Simulated assay, not measured.
Amino acid sequence: MPELPEVETTRRGIKPWLQGHAVTQVIIRQPKLRWVVPEAVMALQGQVVRELTRRGKYILLHTDAGIGLIHLGMSGSLRIVDADVAPRKHDHFDLVLASGKVVRYHDPRRFGAFLWADGDPLQHALLRDLGPEPLSDMFDGDYLFAQSRQRTVSVKVFIMNAHIVVGVGNIYANEALFSAGIDPRCAAGSISRERYVQLAQAIRQILTYAIECGGTTLRDFVREDGTPGYFKLELKVYGCTGQACAGCQNPIIQITQGQRSTWFCPVCQT
């Protein structure tokens, strides 16, 4: 599933093709995504994309008429293709540009979204209650420590809560906790301020590096030009069941938390 680095990689990749360019046509082939694509998205036609931003895992297309919101879901991708390239199966919508290029959305599982906001997009029902961006100045160890007090949920589930901080999905939660040496099973409220400082730094460093690598290709994610992301080559624990820990050579173990798989080193993470 595309996580924050994959979405940010996509945003950066399509930005030169979209920002400052006019959308001449919106083609919806399959409106039944996670939510039915609203008729309001047709307001993009004839509009210049003034800015392309991201909030959490949503890509925001800012125009004078309103803002388009795109979510990649579990298997979605946005690619830049020439207008004469025939759509494939699971190519659900196109944004045709005056330049002759097309931004094409591909999503085999149809769990993504294409929505519309007339006012402040940050007040949209899907965005207004999100936590801070992990790469912003609002996110640090002091913030995590304050939010974690009295919480008995595991620290891994805690940092994956989008109301606490956005974009720390399963891959990067596992990797950040390993980097910080924190056992993912620990109760969030039991962890000290000092260790949360380490964890916040690990989250920022790992997400930043993953973006530089173009994201993580595990199964579905590809970049806007169809090439894979390469952070997979840097994974220390995620998906590494039974492999030797990079720190102590003991085997990485796998458990289930909150219906998601967790990988960690029982020696290095305490």
Rank of each mutant, 00 (worst) to 15 (best):
V85T: 12
D225A: 09
L122W: 03
L33N: 03
W116I: 06
H71N: 15
R11Q: 09
L127F: 09
V102N: 09
A83Q: 10
K89S: 09
G181P: 00
P5N: 03
L127W: 07
Q254H: 02
G13D: 08
G215E: 10
G141W: 12
R88W: 01
K236E: 11
S192E: 07
G56D: 11
E3R: 09
D140G: 06
F145L: 00
T53H: 01
T262S: 13
V165T: 05
L126M: 04
P2Y: 04
L218C: 00
F231N: 14
R195Y: 10
D84P: 04
D129M: 13
E51I: 04
D225T: 10
P251M: 04
C265R: 03
R195A: 05
S77H: 08
C186I: 02
I59S: 06
Q201G: 15
W35P: 04
A246K: 13
H124L: 07
D82E: 13
I253C: 09
V102I: 14
A83C: 08
T241L: 13
A202E: 13
Y196N: 02
R79F: 09
Q201S: 11
R55D: 00
N161L: 10
H124V: 03
A210D: 08
S179L: 15
P87E: 10
Y105Q: 02
P228E: 14
H90C: 06
Q257P: 03
A125V: 13
V267K: 13
Y230F: 15
H106P: 02
L207Q: 04
D84S: 07
L4M: 08
G189P: 05
L33Q: 07
I67P: 01
G167E: 03
T227F: 14
I159D: 05
S136M: 12
V102S: 04
V197N: 12
Y172N: 12
L95H: 11
H163M: 01
D142F: 10
A146F: 07
D94H: 15
A162M: 03
L78E: 14
S77W: 09
L72D: 04
V157T: 14
I203F: 08
A43H: 07
V166Q: 03
P121F: 01
G167Q: 00
L235D: 01
H71C: 07
G56T: 10
V103Y: 12
D183F: 11
I253Y: 12
I211S: 05
C240I: 01
E8L: 12
C213D: 14
Q30F: 08
G189W: 09
P134A: 00
L95A: 12
A162T: 12
F139V: 09
A40I: 05
G112Y: 02
T152Q: 13
R50G: 02
C240H: 15
A22F: 07
Q254P: 01
Y209I: 05
R88M: 12
I171G: 10
E51Y: 05
T24Y: 03
G46N: 02
G229W: 11
A113T: 03
W17S: 14
V102D: 05
I255P: 01
G73T: 00
Y238A: 01
W263F: 15
I159Q: 06
N170W: 09
G100L: 15
A65Q: 15
F139P: 01
S192K: 11
N170P: 12
F145E: 04
I159P: 02
R193V: 07
H90E: 12
D120G: 02
R128G: 02
V96L: 14
V85N: 07
Q45P: 00
A125F: 03
K236T: 06
T227W: 10
I206Q: 08
A246T: 13
G229H: 08
